[in-house]
Design a protein around this nucleic acid. Structure first.
Lengths: 212, 212
DNA sequence: CTGTGAATGTGAATTTTGTAACAAAACCCC
DNA sequence: GGGGTTTTGTTACAAAATTCACATTCACAG
């Protein structure tokens, strides 16, 4: 209910809740109990109620949650009830794949700028977007009101990309490059590395084998 | 030291340690203390020592950790000191991007099979790999010794892909599709959804703004 | 060969997160 | 409109993860 510190895990679960709630909506379910939602998300039902309690009271006692309302409430709580302008730095394989990824705009993250420092790439059009020199970041961040920077450079250039973005006044950075970077504490930084899921899978599979 | 239950977060951090240690190695650093490694990973130094203690004693008291040895030890602990054969189901945009992603083989996850149920795609060659009908999964899983299945289908077909994989005897599944699926408890299942990092960024940025 | 300094490994204390339990609230039926 | 039923929101409790603190171990110097 009050905005004390909110666990990282809660944020991740809220994303899951939205996903599952959207499926319920598609199936035509209007109302859902925390119990039923919990089962679909493979979590405990008090977990759901507690996660939601950080942000407010969204349910009706004795009834449950109205699916559409809850989706709207969670989105507002997370701050994704509006669009976020994003700029992507590093137009390699991964960068291109992200630029092509429809889901971004559908989820409210609008890729408005693509940047690279390779002269051969500058000027090229990818998905209707012109690749711009990274040095122009300060101008473009202001012009396009970019708030979130996406780093998809090779690891050795990630820190420089971060510096450009920070200098240009970006508010948050999502780093897809496999290297640690440092930014001022007022910049929100997230690392994306899906390989740790593969590591986890490898570890658990081998551990299960080792058990017998 | 003993193989009790190992926190998920520990696995994720071990991946970070490998990353940072590899950078140290490239820079020519041979020995590193938990203190210095901790700083580079933005974690507490006892955290590192405790994480490692789940798997054994890898350091030398009064000295620190030998970088190369520690990388090797962590990789062995995670079970990535050998190659893992992977099959990918759903050759859409995301699937193709992953098939093209060099990092997989570099990290020891070998993409050996690509499957789809679209007759227009079957037979097509992507990255030197022929797209095969999903119905042939049982045969191919055995033939190619596939252990990990990667699901990159649209959400509505993810469950069916999972069923095929489970029926074919796969050991673990990494689901990139934005939908929950259910599998028998002996199959290890991981969900990959990098949007929750975007949600977290959006939330924290807006919260920071709201503070003042 | 003993003393000194440094950094690990680990048990104990603390903090955080997750679960259970229940009182408060809303609906429904008679 | 009141009692019963259901399900939330919240508090109290349990479990888990993180951090602290220090005894233990190793390298090295004198």
């Amino acid at each position: 209910m009050k905005s004390e510190h909110i666990p990282k895990a809660t944020i991740a679960r809220l994303a899951t809740y939205i996903q599952v709630l959207s499926e319920f909506k598609r199936e035509g379910t209007d109302v859902v109990s925390s119990e039923r939602l919990a089962e679909a998300c493979s979590v405990n039902s008090s977990q759901i109620r507690k996660d939601l309690a950080y942000f407010g009271e969204f349910g009706v006692r004795g009834v449950g949650y109205y699916v559409q309302d809850l989706i709207t409430s969670i989105k507002r709580s997370l701050g994704i009830d509006r669009a976020w302008n994003c700029g992507l730095v590093g137009v390699g394989n991964l960068g291109r794949a992200l630029l092509r990824h429809r889901e971004f705009s559908r989820k409210g993250f609008i890729l408005r700028g693509a940047f690279d420092c390779d002269p051969y790439k500058i000027g090229e059009i990818v998905e209707g977007m012109e690749i711009v020199c990274s040095r122009q970041l300060p101008a473009k961040v202001k012009e396009l009101s970019l708030e979130i920077g996406i780093i998809t450079t090779p690891p050795e250039r990630a820190q420089r990309a971060a510096n450009y973005l920070v200098g240009a006044g970006i508010k948050g950075i999502i780093n897809f490059a496999p290297s640690r970077i440092s930014v001022p504490s007022h910049i929100h930084l997230e690392y994306v590395d899906f390989f740790h899921h593969f590591y986890a899978a490898a570890f658990h599979i081998r551990f299960a084998e080792h058990q017998e």
